[in-house]
């Protein structure tokens, strides 16, 4: 995969912001940046796992079996990630709630086309994972800054993990459920307007 193509999937063809694919568990956890980044990391892990396994399995499996196989693979990988998080970061795992296991039926994870070689498949999975992280991170950043006036990251050393911004009073509704839909609507309109202006 060339670098130009990588940039294209990150911005102009971002699955989350432009095509609105793979929204299911993503929207609900975009209330905090830390939740969004954690979900994106699990997504990248599952994408790489299914991508690698798909190359091995889909060489001989008939077309009918592909979707069921991916579903099973995805649920196994997500379960592994879930057990890992509950063991090492229980507070973060609790923050994701049922939306972490729901990643198993994410459209982005299930609908990726089987592409020829292993390297191609891994590159495609990495590109999709990065694009998912960028889209979800932007959405979560906008929602958290405007809706709560904070930026929540992970606590490292003496840094508690939460940046508080002073200035504008937070619009609480953006941190609640309607905010996810409204902010994503404006973000996708903005990205369309931007790419329409350049072309």
């Amino acid at each position: 995969m060339k670098s130009g193509e990588f940039r294209r999937i990150l911005w102009r063809d971002n699955p989350l912001l432009v095509y609105l694919v793979g929204l299911c568990p993503a929207l609900a956890v975009s209330n905090r940046l830390s939740n969004a980044l954690l979900l994106a990391a699990v997504m990248l892990f599952a994408l790489l796992g299914t991508g690698i396994a798909a190359v091995a399995l889909e060489r001989w499996a008939p077309l009918r079996l592909r979707l069921p196989m991916r579903l099973l693979l995805a649920s196994a990988l997500v379960t592994a990630a879930q057990r890992f998080l509950w063991a090492f970061a229980p507070t973060h795992a609790a923050g994701l709630g049922i939306y972490l296991p729901l990643l198993a039926v994410n459209c982005l994870l299930l609908a990726s086309a089987a592409s020829g070689s292993l390297a191609e498949s891994v590159a495609q999975a990495a590109g999709r994972g990065a694009a998912f992280a960028v889209g979800l991170g932007l959405l979560a950043l906008a929602r958290e800054v405007l809706g709560a006036g904070t930026i929540t990251l992970f606590p490292i050393g003496s840094f508690g993990g939460v940046l508080r911004l002073r200035g504008l009073p937070p619009a609480r509704v953006l941190a609640a459920a309607p905010g996810a839909l409204l902010v994503l609507g404006y973000l996708s309109a903005l990205s369309r307007w931007w790419s329409g202006r350049r072309s």
Binding site: L20, A177, P178, G179, A180, L181, L182, L184, G185, Y186, S188, A189, R192
Partner: peptide
């Protein structure tokens, strides 16, 4: 985008 805003206002 308009669909999303509609759903957001319904929410």
């Amino acid at each position: 985008p308009l669909s999303l805003l509609t759903a957001g206002l319904m929410s």
